[in-house]
Computed example of a mutant assay.
Amino acid sequence: MLAVLAFIVIFHITSIALLFIATIDNAWWVGTDFSLDIWRTCVNTTTTSVCTDIGSKTNYFQAIQTIQATMILSTILCCFGLVCFAFQLFRLKQGERFVLSGIIQMLSCLCVLIAAAIYSSMHESFHNDLKLPGGSFGYSFILAWIAFAFTFLNSIMYLILRKRK
């Protein structure tokens, strides 16, 4: 049982790391001379890189704010889920453990799903509005989807683990 708990903690910490990287790093949409995330656009020239915040001037600012908010909320919920897991591990009796942690992880999973789904459905409009040529999804966007899978699996593991000795 100790090995299972250690695996779950490592899996949870990995989920938190993936969420932090996906939320902070500037690689949701990348091209040969630019990169775009949910916070700013960076255009690379031969000598410098010019980064500008995605402001309220864009037509899709509310959608971008929704993506920002749900990614931040997901990261906060995932961190809180780990603290809740540690608390429940030592304070609650068997059968009551990990239900709250599982629910918190499921909410975190839902927030990542909302953010990544909104971005994937509206990315064409974002890039046309910002007048960016071509490009493809970057590793931060892929990490967001991987974090979705990890948080979902983690919530399922918590709900299964709640009755184990």
Score class of each variant (00 low, 15 high):
Met1Tyr: 15
Leu2Trp: 12
Leu2Cys: 09
Ala3Val: 13
Val4Ala: 13
Leu5Ser: 06
Phe11Arg: 05
His12Ala: 11
Ile13Arg: 03
Thr14Ile: 14
Thr14Asn: 06
Ile16Gly: 01
Ile16His: 02
Ala17Ile: 14
Leu19Ile: 08
Ile21Asp: 10
Ala22Gly: 11
Thr23Ala: 11
Ile24Gly: 01
Asn26Glu: 10
Ala27Glu: 15
Trp28Asp: 05
Gly31Val: 07
Gly31Cys: 08
Asp33Pro: 00
Asp33Ile: 04
Phe34Ile: 05
Ile38Tyr: 00
Thr41Gln: 09
Cys42Asn: 10
Thr45Gln: 06
Thr47Trp: 10
Thr47Tyr: 13
Thr48His: 12
Thr48Ala: 13
Ser49Pro: 01
Val50Lys: 07
Cys51Pro: 03
Cys51His: 04
Ser56Glu: 12
Lys57His: 11
Tyr60Gly: 04
Gln62Pro: 02
Ile64Gly: 00
Ile64Trp: 01
Ile64Tyr: 02
Thr66Gln: 01
Thr66Arg: 02
Ile67Asp: 03
Ala69Glu: 02
Thr70Gly: 03
Met71Gln: 02
Ser74Trp: 01
Thr75Tyr: 11
Ile76Phe: 14
Ile76Gly: 09
Ile76Tyr: 08
Leu77Met: 15
Cys79Asn: 10
Gly81Glu: 12
Gly81Trp: 11
Gly81Gln: 11
Phe85Arg: 04
Ala86Val: 14
Ala86Asp: 03
Gln88Asn: 07
Gln88Met: 02
Gln88Gly: 09
Leu89Phe: 13
Leu89Lys: 03
Arg91Leu: 00
Lys93Glu: 01
Gly95Gln: 14
Arg97Val: 12
Arg97Tyr: 08
Phe98Ser: 09
Phe98Ala: 06
Ser101Gly: 07
Ser101Asn: 02
Ser101Arg: 04
Ser101Ile: 10
Gly102Met: 10
Ile103Ala: 13
Ile103Met: 12
Gln105Ser: 12
Gln105Asn: 08
Met106Leu: 15
Leu107Glu: 09
Leu110Val: 15
Cys111Thr: 13
Ala115Cys: 11
Ala116Lys: 06
Ala116Cys: 06
Ala117Arg: 01
Ala117Glu: 08
Ile118Lys: 05
Tyr119Phe: 15
Ser121Asp: 10
Met122Thr: 07
Glu124Arg: 07
Ser125Glu: 07
Phe126Asp: 02
His127Ile: 13
Asn128His: 12
Asp129Pro: 12
Asp129Phe: 12
Pro133Glu: 14
Gly134Cys: 06
Gly135Asn: 14
Gly135Arg: 14
Gly138Ser: 08
Gly138Asp: 07
Phe141Asn: 01
Ile142Thr: 04
Trp145Ile: 07
Trp145Asp: 02
Ala147Arg: 04
Phe150Asp: 04
Thr151Glu: 03
Thr151Cys: 11
Phe152Met: 12
Leu153Lys: 00
Leu153Cys: 13
Leu153Tyr: 04
Leu153Gly: 12
Leu153Glu: 01
Leu153Met: 10
Asn154Thr: 05
Asn154Glu: 05
Ser155Asp: 04
Met157Arg: 00
Met157Val: 09
Tyr158Cys: 02
Tyr158Met: 11
Leu159His: 08
Ile160Gln: 05
Ile160Arg: 05
Ile160Leu: 14
Ile160Tyr: 09
Leu161Glu: 05
Leu161Val: 07
Arg162Phe: 12
Lys163Arg: 14
Arg164Glu: 11
Arg164Leu: 11
Lys165Leu: 08
Lys165His: 09
